[in-house]
């Protein structure tokens, strides 16, 4: 077993400061930890969301106005129609996130969490799902549950969006979409949320069980073929 000192990293003081600030500001869910070179997107009605928007990676100033954007299956990219600074209409391709790059960034975001909080979240999850599913989650990072209400099956995954599946009349399983949801905030271009990975999984699971309609409304529905779906 490694000692506490070994498990600490350069970000432990930042995490401690954010924790203390969260308690002082009576933010019951705490304050997300900003990471250098990562853009933290905080839920817009959060009182500190505008402050967080100024921290982290800086986007270059926009000299164009986006008119419309849609996804092209053929190009596997978003097609963007925009107006440049001279007022001319132009178009361009914006490729989706690269899975490898997103995976690297997600690994980097692990400095925002502690082993202790993940351990507590795992303990909580172990009380919510049967033992065999918990074992499945520990060993594979995912587990499956079927909704009693809608009959849809969900694959809850650590650090990846939840996959919603349905079975048609012929018995064929189809992916409906991947559901992405992070309480409070997430790091843009990654699969990492501001909470430790298993807390995000618990949020997905309980929202699905408590109010499936609300869960779908709150989550971003990502089509299976898009790289953001993590499939």
């Amino acid at each position: 077993m490694q000692s506490q000192e070994v498990l600490e990293d350069n970000y432990s003081s930042t995490r401690q400061i954010m924790r203390a600030l969260g308690i002082k500001a009576e933010e019951w869910c705490g304050l997300p930890v900003p990471i250098a070179d990562e853009k933290l997107i905080v839920e817009p009605s959060h009182p500190a969301s505008s402050v967080y928007a100024k921290i982290g990676r800086e986007d270059p100033p926009e000299d164009k106005t986006i008119i419309n954007t849609w996804y092209s299956y053929r190009h596997r990219s978003d097609i963007v129609i925009y107006r440049d600074k001279e007022g001319k209409l132009r178009w361009g391709l914006v490729p989706g996130i690269h899975s490898l790059r997103a995976a690297f960034s997600t690994m980097g975001c692990s400095i925002a969490w502690t082993v202790e909080e993940e351990e507590r979240a795992l303990l909580k999850l172990s009380t919510l799902i049967p033992d065999h599913l918990f074992k499945m989650y520990l060993l594979s990072g995912m587990f499956i549950e079927t909704s009693k209400r809608s009959g849809l099956t969900y694959i809850f995954r650590k650090l990846r969006p939840t996959v919603a599946l349905t079975t048609d009349k012929t018995g064929e399983v189809k992916i409906l979409c991947a559901l992405c949801l992070h309480p409070i905030g997430y790091y843009e271009g990654t699969w990492a949320g501001s909470m430790c990975p298993t807390d995000d999984v618990i949020a997905h699971l309980l929202m699905m069980r408590a109010d499936e309609h609300f869960y779908w409304k709150r989550a971003n529905q990502i089509r299976a073929h898009r790289p953001e779906a993590g499939l």
Binding site: R15, M18, C29, G30, L31, P32, E117, S194, D199
Partner: peptide, 10 residues
């Protein structure tokens, strides 16, 4: 219990 950042599940 509140799912929270930093302290984990409080």
């Amino acid at each position: 219990s509140v799912l929270s950042v930093g302290g984990g599940d409080i």
